[in-house]
Design a protein around this nucleic acid. Structure first.
Lengths: 248, 248
DNA sequence: GAAAAGGTTTGATCTGCATCAAGGCTTAAA
DNA sequence: TTTAAGCCTTGATGCAGATCAAACCTTTTC
């Protein structure tokens, strides 16, 4: 986005939704003061619904801590996850009055909210905000398209491997990769949520996780704690062009 | 986006990529003159590849006439369409050097291109452009998420019905709905392209199209010319909450 | 006007994942 | 200590859609 000097920010929050990702040191002055004035925090417990599709939504927000999901549900109950929001991700759409998806906290969740009206006004007067939002939205669009390939063309095993690789990669930025290079993380999703992410049933998810374990691609401690002894091996299972590009 | 007075524009092009969609009469002055200076046109024949994934891409563009697709291909040849670009849609990403998807002309295609550098500079100085691009990108993201539900959870029959409804709806803005309310249009995609859109095989597409015809949901003239005698009936087959909202 | 090439349909068969069903493990409540 | 509630695993079976195969347009080429 060609700003002056970008730096990633740790999460004290206390700032603009876009700033969660990267901040331009020289540009932050009054823009941030104004954001400061219209922001407030909301907390949700694991499992709680933040908002239902179709409900009035008079704020936009940024995830501070925890994980939220966007899901769509068909009349007969079939569910598809269409967004997985990690810290720094943005929720809500400037210029739309109602939510288009169910938003749910899958872990305890803290969001930094901005009432929509003043946020939109600020967007008008502060070009940086629209530009940064554009960049974030384009990233999300790329992620959505990757996800479409997964949903449309990958096998169940490839889907599971892909999801594990995605989570491992996103975590790896912050977290440790232990000792000699194996990666360790906790699954933030239940088997059912994984199924909704991947367009599978929870039984199939369970079977394929077991299969990857049996084949030595991953190790399990309990149900949720995952150890990936060889990340490249996991990536091979995803069906993607390897290149890996693990630690950017 | 809260502009002054929006109006849709027919396609003489000769303007900014975002203006293809809607134009703010009061804002167009010098901004458009500068766009005018950096734009040029390119034409492609049906079937021609505009750009390959990974290739250097030093322009952004807007579809003027014709239809283009974005597709992703896995190493073993599995293909998934991830974007269907109709006139007024935007291609390319400000701030990225290489194409992320294969872009192909499925019909004869004319695009209005802007070299990336000057376009990005113009974006810096003209907030409207980023704001309009943001809005368009958010629309695309919504479409992508709808598409994800289709890929992950719908049956083959529902997928076909959904695709036909999407095309019918998008066409209906410009085109006729004949006589007493039946909708008529030409499929711009081959069976194989439909399959790549829907995450199916071309044989399944063919079978389900035949089934919808047999059941009276659609009529066919030749292979491509579709008649939808009752749009609501078609929408019922999509699995979506009806509401329809056909003629916005 | 024959032949070739794309695109499409239809049939026969196979298979990966869904569905139905039961039981296990872990944590929380009674 | 037992019961209940979530969450997860595993087995048996069924089916939607994939795969393999052949033939049918329609248009283009020679």
């Amino acid at each position: 986005m060609a700003h002056h000097d970008l730096q990633t920010v740790s999460h004290e929050c206390g700032d603009c939704p876009i700033r969660h990702r990267a901040v331009c040191a020289r540009c932050e002055s009054d823009e941030l003061q104004r954001l400061e004035q219209i922001k407030y925090y909301r907390s949700y417990q694991a499992g709680q619904t933040v908002i239902w599709s179709g409900d009035r939504m008079d704020f936009v927000a940024s995830v501070v801590t925890g994980i939220a999901t966007l899901t769509q549900t068909m009349e007969d109950g079939r569910r598809q996850m269409v967004g997985l929001l990690l810290p720094s991700d943005f929720v809500g759409r400037p210029g739309r009055a109602t939510a288009a998806y169910d938003v749910t906290a899958t872990t305890d969740l803290v969001m930094c909210c901005f009432r929509k009206k003043p946020f939109e006004e600020l967007m008008q007067s502060t070009p940086h905000i629209a530009q940064r939002l554009l960049e974030m939205t384009l990233d999300e669009l790329d992620a959505a398209r990757e996800w479409m390939l997964l949903l449309g063309r990958k096998t169940a095993r490839e889907k599971i491997a892909s999801l594990l690789a995605i989570i491992a990669r996103r975590d790896a930025h912050l977290k440790l990769k232990s000792a000699k290079g194996s990666i360790v993380f906790d699954l933030p999703l239940t088997r059912e949520e994984m199924a909704d992410y991947l367009g599978l049933t929870l039984e199939t998810v369970s079977r394929q996780v077991s299969a990857l374990k049996r084949d030595g691609v991953i190790e399990l401690e309990g149900k949720r704690h995952i150890i990936v002894p060889n990340f490249d091996r996991l990536v091979e299972e995803t069906g993607d062009d390897s290149d890996g590009g693990f630690l950017v």
